[in-house]
């Protein structure tokens, strides 16, 4: 008689890899073979995960078709199963999985579309957090401005993609042949910021310099260091745009021995 842990591991191996042998011996048939009974659970588990991926990767599914998507999702589930019952977190490795999938190699832009859609999904599901109110900076002494560091909103992701994945996703989901035909795959890297603002999830393109500034700002670099690194950038304007769009959640003074942390405003 197996222990509970042994039985559950054997059941898991059956549902994930189709290895029914061990667990089937522990199950009563009664007119319906154990393998047939296990298939009911396997079908449910797989369809729940496939639907979860489908929800996050709508454009990818449109690009490859439902049958191919389901095949890819089934392989992905075996190789990268979920580690938690919170399935909004499931699927972060799907883009890299697609990049390594030989049968999808012709669609060279597919992994980038997946990366873009995953950023949208993260933005939609990220925890609520305060949005930095510019008025809170008024209390910071002028001589401390260069020590300011900023916390990004948890929904924010910066993407540098080789293909125009945002345009591809938009075109394929709109169903517009004309929009698809207008896409220039060789148009160069797309520098994107994706986050959830007051009006919902938004994705915008930045110019490369503004993107690099945002990347270092969100990594917690001091404002003084950023001013030194981007002499040609209108820092005040770039920072005001970050604050105005709700990309930041708070700030702290990075170069003081006792860092002052502050977050606030509306979530």
């Amino acid at each position: 008689m197996p222990t509970l842990d042994e039985l559950q591991r054997a059941f898991g191996a059956s549902l994930r890899f189709g290895e029914d042998g061990t667990i089937a011996e522990a199950i009563i048939g009664g007119g319906i073979a154990p393998e047939e009974r296990l298939r009911i659970y396997r079908n449910t588990a797989q369809s729940v995960l496939a639907d979860s991926l489908r929800l996050a990767y709508r454009a990818v599914e449109r690009l490859v078709g439902r049958n191919f998507f389901d095949m890819a999702a089934a392989r992905f589930m075996r190789e990268c199963p979920p580690r938690t019952g919170y399935l909004n977190d499931y699927g972060d490795a799907f883009a890299d999985f697609l990049a390594a999938l030989p049968s999808a190699a012709e669609l060279v832009y597919l992994p980038d579309v997946a990366r873009f859609e995953w950023a949208l999904s993260i933005a939609a599901n990220a925890p609520d957090a305060p949005v930095l109110d510019i008025a809170m900076l008024a209390d910071v002494e002028k001589e401390q401005h260069e020590a300011l560091c900023f916390m990004p909103h948890p929904s924010l992701r910066l993407l540098r993609l080789g293909f125009p994945a945002d345009e591809i996703a938009g075109a394929v989901l709109s169903g517009s042949e004309r929009a698809m035909a207008a896409i220039d795959l060789s148009s160069g890297p797309a520098w994107l910021v994706v986050h959830r603002g007051p009006d919902g999830v938004e994705a915008r393109r930045l110019d490369p310099q503004a993107w690099r500034f945002a990347a270092r700002l969100h990594a917690g670099e001091t404002l003084g260091s950023l001013i030194d690194s981007f002499p040609d950038l209108d820092i005040a304007r770039a920072l005001a745009e970050q604050v105005g769009r709700g990309c930041l959640s708070g700030f702290w003074l990075g170069s003081t021995s006792e860092s002052l942390r502050c977050s606030g405003g509306a979530a």
């Binding site: 509970l4 059941f11 898991g12 549902l15 659970y41 449910t44 588990a45 979860s52 979920p82 580690r83």
Partner: peptide
């Protein structure tokens, strides 16, 4: 029911064997 084994989540409500060990767990 159970859904986790070996650190992997199985997306269904799976049946328990009705044993003293499972009851204790």
């Amino acid at each position: 029911s159970w859904s986790m084994t070996g650190g992997v989540y199985v997306a269904d409500l799976l049946p328990l064997p009705m044993t003293e060990e499972a009851l204790a767990v």
